[in-house]
Design a binder for these strands. Structure first.
Lengths: 285, 285
DNA sequence: AGCATTCTAGTAATTTAACTACAAAATTAC
DNA sequence: GTAATTTTGTAGTTAAATTACTAGAATGCT
């Protein structure tokens, strides 16, 4: 937890002078960071040891250490203590909050990433005869994106965002095929059933989903994304982004595994897009 | 520029003792951050003022200030100075690097965000009779995602990832319609032409694209995303993520503008998804 | 209500860290 | 090889942070 959040959280349990210190810091963390203990104490109208005690209560070694913590949590842009979008927020506020919560989600996702599982997934994908990506709702666009990425690798890849097509595809699946199910909750009935079907046909099933979900039970390999509390107001936000980054990681692992020669393919695809562009066309859409 | 990069950059122009200091810091920035000037001086086998002078040369106010800078650049996880994926990288390394570069991209995107433009875009979207999202290639999945989000708002929304459908749709467009073109480069010929067509029919054209592109010229409003150097190896990565976050921001702005009552709609949509789930179904896919 | 106990805050003293001024050594230029 | 300049270190100074102790406020108990 970052230090400003911690201050905000404990605000109730503070004593009178501690609250004064907290307020001064919260009001202008940037300037608090650059103040000496004496300056800050004067600003909060308390004594220096009070400030010091405050720092200690926040589980830091002392004032200088406290400033380091403060610096770290101010490092990434706006110090929004509360990442939840509020009704009264203007464009500045809600934009910053959404960026904040997205980045926080990515940070936790990174920390909980199981690179061994990723490595195994890359193994499986590189050896696949055919790769399918299945997603529904918000996860459908992630599946589309995955298709777009793996399509460039010149491997048979397909993407379905439709329950029936997914089911049919699973019924006809066979050994050597890899099916990647993308689902944040892992509780979509049709996904669970389709995954079971595919496993039955000896296809390999990879789940990008919650580790403790019914879908995870049916998978040969689970890539779980621990995303910090979804901040979304009734909409998937951070989870989706984390899934996309995971796709990027898998795609990168894939190209690295395939070696240098293979990467020339990618360049060809990219160059091939040029003529559909107005000059300067060096990048993708 | 972050302070570690700056040190790495100036490494050549350092004197003998300065280099010693630099090396100690680069080798263990985390511990340097928590050291006193005396400890660090001893570790580098130089005198204290040398360390102090080093800090000043790095354009900081002194040692404590230097430590703050250090803290800030160590704040977001691993201090990978080089974020580019290397052939020799293992799963740990490339995963970390992709997370790093994605987050760095979001950080720059946030800093360059034009919230006034966002506010205007929200204005336009809330008043639209019909909203269309157009994307091709990697941007197609962003368009799909946008559709998924705005669909929940119970407004007429459509998404095309096909050149011909996009063109036809533009030909039939009229006043009151809003068309959002998503394109990283803004140089896709068909997009530019379709946008011009739509403008001709008095439809409102919003571009999520490069501000200095041909497409931007044709737009009523441009939302540009300044994304730090794309780290991708022949594939779009960070740009896409930033676009999605922008969609989240627009969607959030939309719901806020529509007010509390409107938000009950969203809850209904969410609750409606329940029965397609195995118990515990509180979230989207 | 009054006394005691505990918790809180401030003063003053101490310790520690950071910085300055100056001098010596080393490097470079001529 | 000497002078000039740059680099580095020593010693002293100042400032900042922390500790120990004491006064005051709040709470609890009889």
């Amino acid at each position: 937890m970052n230090i400003l959040e911690k201050i905000a959280l404990n605000q109730n349990s503070f004593s009178k002078s501690e609250r004064k210190v907290a307020e001064i810091i919260m009001a202008a963390p940037q300037s608090a960071m650059h103040s000496s203990i004496a300056t800050l104490a004067k600003a909060a109208d308390v004594s220096e040891p009070t400030v010091n005690r405050f720092c200690r209560r926040m589980e830091t070694k002392g004032f200088p250490d406290f400033k380091l913590h403060l610096a770290q949590c101010l490092a990434s842009g706006t110090p929004y203590v509360n990442r939840h979008v509020d009704e009264a927020d203007g464009p500045d506020a809600y934009s910053a909050k959404i960026f904040d919560s997205t980045m926080a989600a990515l940070e936790t996702a990174r920390q909980h990433l199981d690179t061994a599982a990723i490595n195994r997934a890359v193994d499986i994908l590189t050896q696949a005869r055919k790769i399918s990506f299945f997603g529904l709702g918000a996860s459908a666009s992630v599946a589309h994106d995955a298709q777009n990425k793996f399509f460039r690798f010149n491997v048979p890849v397909i993407c379905f965002d439709d329950v029936l097509m997914q089911r049919m595809s699973c019924i006809n699946s066979s050994e050597g095929e890899v099916i990647v199910f993308i689902s944040h909750t892992g509780r979509t009935k049709s996904h669970v059933e389709s995954a079971a079907q595919a496993r039955n046909n000896d296809a390999t099933v990879i789940g990008i989903t919650d580790a403790n979900s019914p879908l995870a039970q049916e998978c040969s390999l689970v890539l779980s994304l621990e995303v910090s509390e979804d901040t979304d107001m009734y909409m998937p936000m951070s989870s989706r982004i984390a899934q996309l980054v995971l796709i990027d990681i898998l795609a990168t692992g894939f190209t690295l595994r395939r070696g240098t020669k293979f990467r020339e393919n990618l360049k060809r695809v990219k160059d091939g897009l040029r003529e559909s562009r107005f000059n300067k066309g060096l990048r993708d859409h």
